[in-house]
Design a binder for these strands. Sequence first.
DNA 1: GGGAATATCTTTGAGTTCCAGCATTCACAT
DNA 2: ATGTGAATGCTGGAACTCAAAGATATTCCC
Lengths: 217, 217
Amino acid sequence: MLELKDIPLFSKLSPTQLDELQGQMHIHHYEKDSIVFYEGDESEYLHILLDGRVRLYKTAPKGTQVHMHNFAAPEIIALFAAFEQIPFPATCEFLGEGTVGLLPLSKIYDCMKNVDFSISLVSALSKRMKLLANLLHKETIYSTEAKIADLVLNNSAVFERLKNNEIASILNMTPETLSRILTKMKKEKIIIIKKHIVMILNENALRKIIETNCMGN
Amino acid sequence: MLELKDIPLFSKLSPTQLDELQGQMHIHHYEKDSIVFYEGDESEYLHILLDGRVRLYKTAPKGTQVHMHNFAAPEIIALFAAFEQIPFPATCEFLGEGTVGLLPLSKIYDCMKNVDFSISLVSALSKRMKLLANLLHKETIYSTEAKIADLVLNNSAVFERLKNNEIASILNMTPETLSRILTKMKKEKIIIIKKHIVMILNENALRKIIETNCMGN
DNA sequence: GGGAATATCTTTGAGTTCCAGCATTCACAT
DNA sequence: ATGTGAATGCTGGAACTCAAAGATATTCCC
């Protein structure tokens, strides 16, 4: 299993600081599908994903889930929520089994006296912000068609790994909508799907869909 | 007009560092409604709002604007976009007239060797992230009714300052929708509006709208 | 291992909902 | 008197829901 020194954020700390931190860290093991924290929970600890993969999502009033991110170890979870001392904006659920390390926030504040640590922190926060800004863009600007075009263009490999209904939930749409649009794209000869492998026939059409938010006609 | 030392992010720097930075800063004056940068632009400079108020918004393919934030001086604009060296995720437009200081990014990197500066930076980034997370929540989870309930509950004073169509654009909905929902709330005796002043008659109903995303019936 | 039985996905159709768009009328303030 | 903002009815589009059928996987049993 991973240790603190394997995590980029902490890699710049001295061995003594690392030992001290490692000693303060509580390790929790989680089974598949278990919840690390719920949206709205508060915590005095920084959650560090040491092993496994988690999914972060919001829950809408009617119970539908709005997918935000998947994270794989090693990763800091809910970084800014910890710093702002606000309730978690999303629920964190394990996809398989895995482990989380809990580090008291007060210890982190101590580390910030170390310049290199602070700089890593700035970089980590700013990366996370990029993720969030990206998500916001997709959810507020993109139509369902544009979301799918974007996925096909930038990450067509997921169609090999995941079932369509899993992809739909990551894109925050229903499997029906995904299916309808994929068949439409196939009909328009923009893509071909064979044995779960997506081949792009007309890349420009995909870019145009992203730009205009809709397909030709 | 404000100087660098008046800006929280820079307040911890030494007078000599401040002088050096101030010397490197280009000052730009902008008229009302002028654009500081467009969504998609790139820049080697950190934009610092020294005077006036700006509005940040995304533009959807059909030309509709998605309002993100209003900022008043002093404030750093597009903080994380600068750090991640990515195109601006939104357009920045002045609401009145004002001034912006441009600071070369390379100079900022130098400052990060100063621990106090780095810590301020972490705090600034994390605050901005909170704003963004909030916006994401409103845009992905809230219905139009919930957005309005939230505004009435947490910032009913805006109804005195702004016209309804301005409020609608901040909430990313049409004035018609805002009008319809406000009259519905008045009919249900949840609020009363007199002379642009909103009075809350039934706070619990508002909370329930936010929780359930819809009004009683 | 082959093939039936079963479960799980995917596709397709029809209907619904939410909210934007347009047009008109109404209200109010210059 | 005139222009701007607000209210309201109607229409339309995007994406969701529900339901049912079709296609794939998976399991089980001989």
